[in-house]
Design a binder for these strands. Sequence first.
DNA 1: AACGTTATATCGTATAACGTAATAGTAAAA
DNA 2: TTTTACTATTACGTTATACGATATAACGTT
Lengths: 101, 101
Amino acid sequence: MVKKSRFSENSLLILISLAEKERHGYAIMEDIEKNYDIKLGPGTLYGAIARLEKEGYIRVLESEDRKKPYKLTEEGQQYLTEQLKEIQKVTTIGMKRLGLV
Amino acid sequence: MVKKSRFSENSLLILISLAEKERHGYAIMEDIEKNYDIKLGPGTLYGAIARLEKEGYIRVLESEDRKKPYKLTEEGQQYLTEQLKEIQKVTTIGMKRLGLV
DNA sequence: AACGTTATATCGTATAACGTAATAGTAAAA
DNA sequence: TTTTACTATTACGTTATACGATATAACGTT
């Protein structure tokens, strides 16, 4: 069985952010910047969020103010888990081949 | 100029393949399929190879037949090392947040 | 009160990366 | 001899991405 891989980094970072807890877009951005020192521009961020929502990996919750909090869905959690395992497989082989054990 | 997203998977897979030893395109494809069960189409493969060569991360070696063997450059090795470390940081945080230790 | 700054989100655009497929030639196998 | 596996190139349409412009609300400071 041939699987097409797609670990688009920004999407992953967003999912990982939501894996900790619910967050709205701006808070996701801050979380990512704080943890990895990666600053996503608004277009990048909200574009990725829209795609993730369309895929059903995250969903929006209601709120009173203009913030739109997102939550990882069950599907998103499964997807993220699979992806991270795949990626770890890749990095493990890579590290071995680089001689970095 | 568009910054490349840090784990542009295909490029990484190619670099990791070359981290083990020199390989020509088709052999890279087989290596990747064998190790991760990911089958790159020719356009994807050779397109990524061309970009990596342009970046100076790999270079082509001479050969007698029509095979074009590629080799990881010093720069490519450094780049790959950095990238893998970054990615491991991401997966580590992700796994923690998923509760998968 | 006025002003600047931070918080929050949407939309548009140009380009790069990707997937798919068509093409082509050479070598190996049946 | 015919077919299948190797090996690479090129073109095209789609999607993702980076980047920036825009908008509004809230907060802090002068």
